[in-house]
Amino acid sequence: MSLLKPFSKLPGLNTANILLVESEEQFQQSLADALVEETSVTVNVRLAKSLPLPMENDESRPRIDLVVFIINLTSELSFQSAEASLKYLDPGYFLGKVCFMVTNARNASSPAERLDAVRKLASSLHCPLLFAEDQTPDGVASATERLLTILKVAAGLVPIATALYVSNLTRCTLPLDIDLPSFD
């Protein structure tokens, strides 16, 4: 068991590395296929079911610039697995190099409490929380685009912007009770 560290290796030239963690391994493959299509930078995608990552590839593994936890809201297991994986990350990652991506948020079979729990988790870790429509090609394309936007900043490819700076703007905020806006 080892911590994944953000700065233990040197970055590659014009390269960004992203790690997709999803216990169900459904969405990550299609995301990965779309992510590597990016042409302006070399994007390496690593897939994992959960953390910690196995020791044997440790040497050959590049520096991971962004860790994405994909959570399927219809499954409690998916959430628990992501939560359990978090402790294998170096605290340095939480300075803007982790984000959560949630699927099926609008599905009738995903309970509102679970979404609240995910929101609480993301906001307590100061991480962005993205929502994705994983069933449609458009949804996958848009999710890819948004991950790339974050990834480029996290990999230091955007001048003047740092991951910490941007994550301060994009981090999830605590859930709010919208049902009762007391307007009067």
Binding site: P128, L129, E145, R146, T149, V166, L169, T170, P181, F183
Partner: peptide, 18 residues
């Protein structure tokens, strides 16, 4: 209310999108 209802979700969307 404007901050809670509008700005926070919009800001998160704005800075992570294309």
């Amino acid at each position: 209310q404007i901050r809670r209802l509008l700005f926070e979700p919009l800001m998160q969307l704005f800075f992570t999108s294309s």
